[in-house]
């Protein structure tokens, strides 16, 4: 039987990838348009990159987003990794099913529900809304993603190695740090990266959890987008796409080298 794709298959794949990438390509091209009108081409120019970087509100929101993403991803990685360890290595304890459901819930919960729920929690706890509450909110769904990524790696890793370390006199903590952690490190890193990008990307949950003075980049972009399409947004979008592309390619190259 023939392997590979028929002409139909190749056409479908080409059309599918054109559909996925054409809007992004057009967005990037639009960012280099000299004119203010996005749909009228007025020649190439990097003018809007300058405008975007001189926009103080925009730059401030980039810093807020980076702080939030760094802190939230790190917190999520700690909680998610411990959670994954508990889920895969301690098979029997009371409430294990609940524990599992609890970790998976943020994955399937619509963003508006999680955002509203966390906001109501922060109000109940009388926490001042700001960067701190956005970090906690992002860490909550980030931890769920980390737990999934890390537990799939832990599941394929023989616990006998940890047991051997403990038989040789290592405490469980030491066995975890010296045997388990190095093996699952790529998954932990992947989980951190996932939590980091999800945090950078999130508009809905941040809008609920945030307060005055803590406007993240997506919140800033959203409020500008509502006023209409502008080449400045295209420019900032292109910079974000470039940063993510470099990070993803770098991460996959690093993963390949380790293997």
């Amino acid at each position: 039987m023939r392997r590979g794709n028929s002409l139909f298959g190749v056409t479908v794949l080409t059309a599918g990838f054109a559909f996925l990438y054409l809007p992004i390509v057009l967005l990037v091209i639009g960012s280099f348009n000299a004119g203010r009108q996005v749909n009228v081409w007025a020649g190439w120019s990097a003018r809007w990159y300058g405008e975007a970087l001189r926009n103080e509100q925009l730059v401030a929101s980039i810093w807020v987003s980076l702080q939030v993403a760094l802190a939230a991803a790190t917190l999520a990685t700690v909680v998610g990794t411990i959670g994954a360890f508990v889920l895969t290595r301690l098979p029997r304890f009371r409430g294990r099913a609940l524990f599992r459901i609890g970790f998976l819930t943020p994955l399937v919960l619509p963003e508006v529900i999680l955002g509203l729920a966390l906001l109501l929690l922060f109000v109940r706890l009388d926490l001042d809304r700001g960067i701190g509450t956005v970090i906690l909110a992002h860490a909550t769904f980030g931890a769920a993603f980390v737990a999934v990524v890390v537990s799939s790696r832990l599941a394929s890793f023989d616990p006998a190695l940890e047991e051997a370390a403990m038989d040789l006199g290592a405490t469980p903590m030491r066995a975890f740090l010296r045997v388990t952690l190095p093996v699952i490190a790529p998954a932990v890193l992947a989980g951190w990266l996932l939590a980091f990008t999800l945090s950078l990307d999130d508009l809905v949950i941040a809008s609920f959890a945030s307060g005055p003075g803590a406007t993240t980049l997506p919140m800033r972009i959203y409020s500008q987008v509502r006023l209409g399409v502008s080449p400045e947004i295209n420019a900032i979008s292109t910079m974000m796409i470039a940063a993510v592309t470099v990070a993803v390619i770098g991460a996959s190259l690093a993963a390949k080298r380790r293997r």
Partner: peptide, 20 residues
């Protein structure tokens, strides 16, 4: 190639369609 767009901002991908 299928996964890569997922890593770029959701908001930006939706925004791209407004101009189209």
């Amino acid at each position: 190639l299928v996964i890569l767009p997922f890593w770029t901002s959701f908001l930006i991908r939706v925004y791209a369609w407004i101009g189209i």
